[in-house]
Amino acid sequence: MPPAVRLPKPTLTEQQPPPADLSEVASRLRERYLPTLPAPRRSPEPVDALIGTILSQQNTSLIARRQFAALKTSYPQWEAALADGPDGIEGVLRGAGGGLARVKADYIYNVLYRLEETRGTLSLQDTHDLNDAEARALLESLPGVGMKTASCVLLFDMARPAMPVDTHIGRIAARLEWVPARWNAVKVEHWFDEVLPRDWPSRYGFHVSAIRHGRETCRAQRPLCGECVLRDLCPSAGVFLAGSPTAYPVALSKENMPAG
């Protein structure tokens, strides 16, 4: 009896083909929430950008900026933070206010320690000379840096065509029935990576405008479907407008969102 032939696993776009209305949705969201793109930003020191991104997780932007400023005041060079250790970093973060000080201090210290141990420098400036895949691989090799954190640094601080997915984007994709509601954020991000144009303006524009849409209109509870620019394209609009806000699943709950 011949051995069984193992068929290749279908790609995500073979499981969920690109939606025909993707470009129309992207265009409407951009027109509504981000008609003018900002100039791409390249951080002079991506380590600063990475630490800032770590601080922003489960924090308000105001607190994250305050904590980062406190760190830079206490540690003009990151070598000083490495020497001070996680206890010292935690003390600085607590002094600046905000929660999860110990967790974030450990993340920051471990990133700095790994950089020193593996690269002999607390700099990531050379990532600007790497291609997109190489830059991502380097970021994701650092402790506590998952796909979403790396994508945020790549998109916002290195002008690379990444596509971070948060609860808002996942919820919108599920309500549009682009992806199954059971998919987690990592799987949805991989899918978007396959279907979106691989250029910075397209991905930055979609990411930012979709998040604003999720916050302002396509909210987790009581979405404002009557005001939605995607109302005629969204299969879920009729469900919510009929007065049954719990009849359609909300994708990417906190339980299946990755920390990194």
Rank of each mutant, 00 (worst) to 15 (best):
P3K: 09
A4R: 13
R6L: 11
R6D: 03
P10N: 02
L12N: 08
T13E: 11
T13R: 11
E14K: 06
Q15N: 04
P17S: 11
P18K: 11
P19D: 10
D21F: 03
L22M: 12
S23N: 08
S23I: 01
V25N: 01
V25E: 01
V25W: 00
V25M: 08
R30K: 15
E31P: 00
R32Y: 07
T36E: 12
A39Y: 03
P40D: 05
R41I: 10
P44G: 02
E45K: 05
L50Q: 00
I51Q: 02
I51P: 02
G52S: 12
L55K: 02
S61P: 00
L62W: 12
A64V: 04
A64E: 01
Q67T: 10
K72T: 07
Y75C: 10
P76F: 11
W78E: 01
A81V: 09
A81G: 05
D84L: 11
D84W: 09
G85R: 04
G85D: 12
P86C: 08
E90K: 13
G91N: 13
G91D: 13
V92N: 08
V92P: 03
G95F: 13
G95Y: 14
G97H: 09
G97L: 11
G97Q: 12
G97S: 10
G99M: 12
L100A: 07
R102G: 13
Y107C: 07
I108F: 03
Y109C: 06
N110W: 06
N110Q: 14
R114T: 15
L115E: 12
L115Q: 08
E116I: 02
G120I: 09
Q125I: 10
D126E: 15
D129E: 15
D129I: 05
L130R: 07
E134F: 03
E134A: 14
E134Y: 08
A135K: 11
A135S: 06
R136Y: 09
R136Q: 13
A137H: 05
A137N: 08
S141K: 01
P143F: 13
G146K: 14
K148Y: 04
K148A: 02
S151H: 06
S151N: 15
L154I: 01
L154P: 00
F156Q: 02
D157W: 10
A162N: 06
V165N: 00
H168P: 01
I169L: 14
R171H: 09
I172D: 00
A174V: 04
R175M: 09
W178N: 01
W178V: 01
P180G: 07
R182W: 08
W183D: 02
W183I: 00
N184R: 12
V186M: 04
K187Y: 04
K187G: 02
K187S: 12
V188G: 00
V195L: 05
L196I: 09
P197D: 07
R198T: 06
P201A: 08
V208H: 07
I211K: 01
R212E: 13
R212Y: 14
H213P: 00
R215W: 08
E216Y: 11
T217Q: 06
C218R: 06
R222Y: 14
R222T: 09
C225S: 11
V229Y: 04
L230D: 03
L230T: 04
R231H: 07
C234N: 07
P235M: 10
P235V: 09
S236W: 09
V239K: 07
L241K: 06
S244D: 13
P245W: 15
T246Y: 14
A251N: 13
E255S: 15
N256S: 10
G260W: 09
